[in-house]
């Protein structure tokens, strides 16, 4: 449980529960942003979290790789409990990929260098090997021809696909997506969602904060509604959309689907 490194590379030994959140509370000053969150994500499960803004969706996601800390409760990722210990935090981050709303590509590096940075400096992979790996993932997100360009030259959709490739280059067990299509022009949403759908069919564990209900319906195993820092409803997509159990869910769906 404490030596995550021993398990690295041997996917078979990964625990069945990918992410376990128990009694999680978080405050921003006086503001109680997460209130008693309990969630178990099975290996290979795909979860879409939706809900009104300010409901704590992104905060919960960012707790999973400890970009945010919390005051009460615990989170176990791939069998490693996240504590203050920086070694554990780094170990978890190495195996959890994250894609941000604003892409957050490194503007001073080319697309290829963005992808090889972490494999080289975190995984200590030889440069040539890391570049070959990056090219396969860039090919998978269908932009191998942009490898030599700087991110500023790319469209939003292309940048987000590079960001996905960059995360995949670390060979993560779990992928976190924090509103990956919210900052995109409408005509670019589809290319990013297609990439994510393809990723979902590979069986990687995915936690996605998104309002793309079509995506949720298509790939999610479970859909979660968060509001006021609480999980209001957890349901399989069909039931979530067609027969929501909670009034709050019904209201939310009505608002976003018009």
């Amino acid at each position: 449980m404490n030596e995550r490194a021993d398990q690295a590379g041997a996917a078979a030994t990964l625990p069945e529960v990918a992410v376990e959140v128990v009694g999680l509370h978080k405050w921003y000053g006086e503001f109680h942003v997460l209130r008693d969150i309990n969630l178990k994500v099975a290996r290979g499960e795909r979860i879409v979290i939706c809900g009104p803004s300010g409901g704590g969706k992104s905060t919960l996601l960012r707790c999973v790789n400890r970009l945010e800390d919390w005051q009460r409760g615990r989170i176990v990722v791939d069998g490693v409990e996240l504590t203050e210990d920086p070694k554990r935090i780094l170990a978890v981050r190495r195996d959890v990929g994250m894609v941000f709303q604003q892409f957050n590509l490194f503007p001073h590096l080319t697309v290829l260098e963005n992808c090889t940075l972490a494999p080289i400096w975190v995984r200590h992979m030889p440069k040539r090997e890391a570049e070959a790996l990056a090219m396969t993932f860039l090919a998978r997100v269908k932009i191998p021809d942009q490898a030599g360009k700087y991110p500023a030259r790319l469209s939003g959709g292309q940048q987000q696909r590079v960001a996905i490739a960059r995360a995949l280059c670390m060979n993560p067990n779990i992928m976190l997506f924090d509103e990956p299509t919210s900052a995109l022009d409408p005509e670019m949403v589809k290319e990013v969602l297609d990439t994510m759908v393809e990723l979902a069919t590979d069986g990687i564990t995915m936690l996605v904060v998104s309002h793309e209900m079509g995506f949720a319906r298509q790939v999610a195993d479970r859909v979660i509604l968060m509001d006021d820092g609480q999980i209001v409803e957890v349901n399989e997509p069909k039931k979530f959309f067609d027969a929501p159990q909670h009034e709050r869910t019904r209201l939310f769906l009505k608002q976003i689907l018009h």
Binding site: L67, P107, W121
Partner: peptide, 26 residues
């Protein structure tokens, strides 16, 4: 931007690597 720090940390870079490879060059 703070997003640069977050992206570097999310990739598992240590503090000094994050600073040396991502933040300081910019």
């Amino acid at each position: 931007p703070p997003g640069q720090y977050e992206a570097a940390r999310a990739l598992g870079l240590t503090y000094w690597r994050m600073m040396g490879l991502v933040i300081l060059p910019q």
